[in-house]
Structures are given as structure tokens and as C-alpha cells.
């Protein structure tokens, strides 16, 4: 095995920050050491990036055990393809793409098994259509509502709406994350928005 004896400390991820050193430089050194079989180097990489990866995957699953498994999958996949990482972009960008792919795969699998959570449009309607009410809504409640609302759409539409509007990424970043072209992102976003409009206006119930 490449990773021999592994010692895992429960260090706080923030401890991994090295003052005065660019994170990318620290990452590059730990990537080099990981490729040479140093398990502690990979542990440091995980601890440094797991918060970022967890944040991305929380949009894909709000079930804590599933969420944690998805985060694990990202780091296992990243390790197995670490030799393909060329270091031209920060590791966090590369991990974000893997996380998006892992999350999307999970959505597709869930959609195949028709496991969407029950969602009533009454929940959407209950929130009054005035700015103040929405702005005073609990962040967790808002995120949960949008998660279940978007779950009613096919994974492809859901992904583009999530990246563009929930994460607030522009077309270029969405294209980078998904591996689609910018044109495809624009077209997909347009279609997805239309499906969402139909859904909230109760005229598109045959979406999945």
C-alpha cells in the first residue's frame, strides 16, 4: 500500500493554515509528499479543504450521514486521481469540480430510484410574497425549502439552478464546475428556469 501506517489526529482544520505561506504553496508541497506515499500529507490536505468541500456537498444532500459519505468520496476520488492534477489551478478548484461531479452523480442515482422527498407547493405559498418576510426567514429554513423545491426538477436542471442562483456563480464558473460549455450553461439555465416557473405556478407537474 502507498499509505502505510496512518496516524490520524483530530486536529482542527484551521490549525493547518501556515502563517505567511501561500496556501497553494503548502498544498503543492503536501501533494508532492502524498504522491511519495506520505499519509500525513494527505491528512493535512483533507483537513485544509474539507470545510470547502462539505459546503459544496451540503447543497447536494442535507442528510448528515449521506453528506459525510459524499465528502469522503470526494477525497477518495481525489486521491485516486491525484496524478492527473497538474497544479495549474489551485487544488480547491480541482476539488470543487470533483465535489460537483460526486454530488451530481448522487442526484442522478437518487432520481433513478425516484427518492425525491415529498414537497408540497403549499410550503412555497406559505411564505408571503413580500421582501421583508423572505429576508427575515431563517437561513436554514430557506435553504431547506429551496433544496426540496429544486429536488422536484431533473438533476441537470437542478444542478444549473443550484450553481447559478444558490451558489451565485456566473456562467463561466458554472461551466468550469460542470464541464459544460458556456452556451450549454445558458441554454440549460433558461430551460431549467422555465421548468421551475411552471412548477411554482402549478402548471408543470410532470417534470420528473
Amino acid at each position: 500500500m502507498l499509505l502505510g501506517v496512518v496516524s490520524c489526529s483530530a486536529a482542527d482544520p484551521l490549525d493547518a493554515d501556515v502563517p505567511g505561506v501561500e496556501p497553494d504553496v503548502v498544498d503543492a508541497e503536501d501533494i508532492r509528499l502524498t504522491r511519495q506515499g506520505d499519509p500525513d500529507a494527505y491528512r493535512r490536505l483533507i483537513e485544509r479543504h474539507q470545510v470547502h468541500v462539505a459546503k459544496i456537498l451540503w447543497r447536494f444532500s442535507r442528510d448528515r450521514s449521506v453528506h459525510e459519505e459524499l465528502v469522503q468520496d470526494v477525497f477518495v476520488e481525489a486521491y485516486l486521481s491525484l496524478n492527473t492534477f497538474r497544479g495549474n489551478a489551485p487544488l480547491s478548484h480541482w476539488l470543487a469540480r470533483i465535489a460537483t461531479r460526486v454530488g451530481y452523480r448522487y442526484w442522478k442515482e437518487k432520481a433513478r430510484q425516484k427518492e425525491a422527498e415529498a414537497f408540497s407547493l403549499a410550503e412555497w405559498d406559505q411564505i408571503a410574497d413580500d421582501r421583508n418576510t423572505v429576508e427575515q426567514l431563517d437561513a436554514n429554513q430557506a435553504a431547506s425549502l429551496l433544496h426540496r423545491l429544486l429536488e422536484q426538477l431533473p438533476p441537470r436542471d437542478r444542478l444549473v439552478l443550484m450553481l447559478r442562483y444558490l451558489e451565485g456563480y456566473d456562467v463561466a464558473e458554472t461551466a468550469r464546475r460542470t464541464g459544460w460549455t458556456k452556451t450549454m450553461v445558458k441554454v440549460q439555465a433558461l430551460r431549467a428556469r422555465e421548468k421551475l416557473r411552471k412548477l411554482v405556478e402549478r402548471s408543470g407537474m410532470e417534470l420528473i
Binding site: 499509505l3 482544520p13 494527505y42 474539507q50 465528502v71 469522503q72 486521491y79
Partner: peptide
Amino acid sequence: VNVAPEVLTLLT
């Protein structure tokens, strides 16, 4: 989340 121990266990 702290997945480092699980990931390293899986990899080893």
C-alpha cells in the same frame, strides 16, 4: 465534518 480518519482508513 472531519472525514480525514475515515478517508485514510478507506485508502489503507
